Amino acid sequence: MIINNLKLIREKKKISQSELAALLESSRQTINGIEKNKYNPSLQLALKIAYYLNTPLEDIFQWQ
């Protein structure tokens, strides 16, 4: 199971779900699903999230 700190990191950087979704060329619903652990992002999307949040991938997503 993958757990994530996306919501915590996103809020700390003062970025809304909609703003992050626009940067990622994704939907706000996708970001919401990832944050609620209802959806696991593809590797490509996970890497883009890490890039746009300027945060190491392993700080956002962790195996448990």
Score class of each variant (00 low, 15 high):
residue 1 M to V: 09
residue 1 M to A: 06
residue 1 M to K: 06
residue 1 M to Q: 05
residue 1 M to E: 04
residue 1 M to N: 05
residue 2 I to T: 10
residue 2 I to M: 09
residue 2 I to D: 04
residue 2 I to F: 10
residue 2 I to K: 10
residue 3 I to K: 13
residue 3 I to A: 07
residue 3 I to G: 06
residue 3 I to L: 13
residue 3 I to R: 10
residue 3 I to T: 10
residue 3 I to P: 02
residue 3 I to F: 10
residue 4 N to T: 04
residue 4 N to C: 10
residue 4 N to V: 08
residue 4 N to L: 10
residue 4 N to Y: 08
residue 4 N to E: 02
residue 5 N to R: 09
residue 5 N to W: 09
residue 5 N to V: 06
residue 5 N to Y: 08
residue 5 N to P: 00
residue 5 N to H: 07
residue 5 N to G: 03
residue 6 L to P: 01
residue 6 L to D: 02
residue 7 K to A: 11
residue 7 K to Y: 05
residue 7 K to N: 05
residue 7 K to E: 09
residue 7 K to M: 08
residue 7 K to F: 06
residue 7 K to G: 06
residue 7 K to H: 07
residue 8 L to V: 14
residue 8 L to K: 15
residue 8 L to P: 07
residue 8 L to S: 14
residue 8 L to F: 10
residue 8 L to W: 08
residue 8 L to Q: 14
residue 8 L to Y: 11
residue 10 R to D: 02
residue 10 R to S: 03
residue 10 R to T: 03
residue 10 R to I: 05
residue 11 E to N: 09
residue 11 E to I: 13
residue 11 E to P: 02
residue 11 E to W: 07
residue 11 E to S: 09
residue 12 K to S: 14
residue 12 K to T: 11
residue 12 K to N: 10
residue 12 K to H: 10
residue 13 K to F: 11
residue 13 K to N: 11
residue 13 K to E: 06
residue 13 K to A: 12
residue 13 K to L: 13
residue 14 K to H: 11
residue 14 K to E: 09
residue 14 K to W: 06
residue 15 I to G: 02
residue 15 I to R: 03
residue 15 I to D: 00
residue 15 I to W: 06
residue 15 I to S: 01
residue 15 I to V: 09
residue 16 S to N: 06
residue 16 S to M: 05
residue 16 S to F: 04
residue 16 S to E: 04
residue 16 S to Y: 04
residue 16 S to K: 08
residue 16 S to P: 05
residue 17 Q to M: 09
residue 17 Q to F: 04
residue 17 Q to I: 14
residue 17 Q to V: 13
residue 17 Q to A: 07
residue 17 Q to W: 05
residue 17 Q to L: 12
residue 18 S to F: 11
residue 18 S to P: 06
residue 18 S to D: 14
residue 18 S to H: 11
residue 18 S to L: 11
residue 19 E to G: 10
residue 19 E to T: 12
residue 19 E to R: 14
residue 20 L to N: 03
residue 20 L to K: 00
residue 20 L to G: 00
residue 20 L to D: 00
residue 21 A to S: 06
residue 21 A to L: 04
residue 21 A to R: 03
residue 22 A to N: 12
residue 22 A to L: 12
residue 22 A to Q: 12
residue 22 A to T: 12
residue 22 A to V: 11
residue 23 L to S: 08
residue 23 L to F: 12
residue 23 L to E: 06
residue 24 L to G: 01
residue 24 L to S: 09
residue 24 L to H: 01
residue 24 L to T: 15
residue 25 E to W: 07
residue 25 E to F: 10
residue 25 E to S: 14
residue 25 E to Y: 09
residue 25 E to P: 14
residue 25 E to H: 15
residue 26 S to W: 07
residue 26 S to Y: 09
residue 26 S to K: 10
residue 27 S to N: 13
residue 27 S to H: 08
residue 28 R to K: 13
residue 28 R to F: 09
residue 28 R to C: 11
residue 29 Q to V: 10
residue 29 Q to A: 14
residue 29 Q to M: 11
residue 29 Q to N: 12
residue 29 Q to L: 10
residue 29 Q to W: 12
residue 29 Q to E: 15
residue 30 T to N: 05
residue 30 T to C: 15
residue 30 T to Q: 09
residue 30 T to Y: 15
residue 30 T to A: 09
residue 31 I to M: 03
residue 31 I to T: 01
residue 31 I to F: 02
residue 31 I to C: 04
residue 31 I to Y: 01
residue 31 I to R: 01
residue 32 N to P: 02
residue 32 N to R: 15
residue 32 N to L: 09
residue 32 N to I: 14
residue 33 G to R: 15
residue 33 G to M: 15
residue 33 G to H: 13
residue 33 G to L: 15
residue 34 I to A: 01
residue 34 I to R: 02
residue 34 I to V: 04
residue 34 I to D: 01
residue 34 I to E: 01
residue 34 I to S: 03
residue 34 I to G: 02
residue 34 I to Q: 02
residue 35 E to L: 05
residue 35 E to G: 02
residue 35 E to Q: 03
residue 35 E to T: 02
residue 35 E to S: 03
residue 35 E to D: 01
residue 35 E to R: 02
residue 36 K to H: 13
residue 36 K to C: 12
residue 36 K to F: 06
residue 37 N to A: 07
residue 37 N to P: 02
residue 37 N to G: 15
residue 37 N to L: 07
residue 37 N to K: 08
residue 37 N to Q: 08
residue 38 K to V: 13
residue 38 K to F: 13
residue 38 K to T: 13
residue 38 K to R: 13
residue 38 K to Q: 14
residue 39 Y to S: 07
residue 39 Y to A: 09
residue 39 Y to W: 12
residue 39 Y to M: 12
residue 39 Y to P: 01
residue 40 N to I: 15
residue 40 N to C: 15
residue 41 P to C: 04
residue 41 P to I: 09
residue 41 P to F: 05
residue 41 P to A: 04
residue 42 S to H: 06
residue 42 S to Y: 05
residue 42 S to A: 05
residue 42 S to V: 04
residue 42 S to R: 05
residue 42 S to W: 05
residue 42 S to M: 04
residue 43 L to I: 12
residue 43 L to V: 10
residue 43 L to F: 13
residue 44 Q to S: 13
residue 44 Q to A: 14
residue 44 Q to Y: 11
residue 45 L to K: 00
residue 45 L to R: 01
residue 45 L to I: 08
residue 45 L to A: 03
residue 45 L to Q: 06
residue 45 L to M: 13
residue 45 L to F: 14
residue 46 A to Q: 05
residue 46 A to D: 00
residue 46 A to L: 06
residue 46 A to K: 04
residue 47 L to N: 09
residue 47 L to F: 08
residue 47 L to H: 09
residue 47 L to P: 00
residue 47 L to G: 06
residue 48 K to H: 05
residue 48 K to P: 00
residue 48 K to L: 09
residue 48 K to S: 07
residue 48 K to T: 05
residue 48 K to N: 06
residue 49 I to H: 00
residue 49 I to W: 01
residue 49 I to N: 00
residue 49 I to T: 00
residue 49 I to R: 00
residue 50 A to P: 00
residue 50 A to E: 03
residue 50 A to W: 04
residue 50 A to R: 02
residue 50 A to H: 01
residue 51 Y to A: 08
residue 51 Y to M: 11
residue 51 Y to R: 09
residue 51 Y to G: 06
residue 51 Y to W: 10
residue 51 Y to N: 07
residue 51 Y to E: 09
residue 51 Y to I: 07
residue 52 Y to F: 14
residue 52 Y to G: 02
residue 52 Y to C: 11
residue 52 Y to D: 00
residue 53 L to I: 03
residue 53 L to R: 00
residue 53 L to H: 00
residue 53 L to M: 05
residue 53 L to F: 08
residue 54 N to K: 11
residue 54 N to D: 14
residue 54 N to A: 12
residue 54 N to T: 08
residue 54 N to S: 12
residue 54 N to W: 06
residue 55 T to I: 06
residue 55 T to S: 08
residue 55 T to R: 04
residue 55 T to C: 08
residue 55 T to N: 02
residue 56 P to W: 06
residue 58 E to C: 12
residue 59 D to M: 11
residue 59 D to L: 12
residue 59 D to E: 14
residue 59 D to F: 10
residue 59 D to A: 11
residue 59 D to R: 08
residue 60 I to M: 05
residue 60 I to P: 02
residue 60 I to R: 01
residue 60 I to K: 02
residue 60 I to S: 01
residue 60 I to C: 03
residue 60 I to G: 01
residue 61 F to H: 00
residue 61 F to Q: 00
residue 61 F to W: 05
residue 61 F to P: 00
residue 61 F to I: 02
residue 61 F to Y: 01
residue 62 Q to R: 11
residue 62 Q to G: 09
residue 62 Q to N: 05
residue 62 Q to K: 12
residue 63 W to N: 02
residue 64 Q to F: 08
residue 64 Q to P: 14
residue 64 Q to A: 14
residue 64 Q to E: 14
residue 64 Q to C: 11
residue 64 Q to T: 12
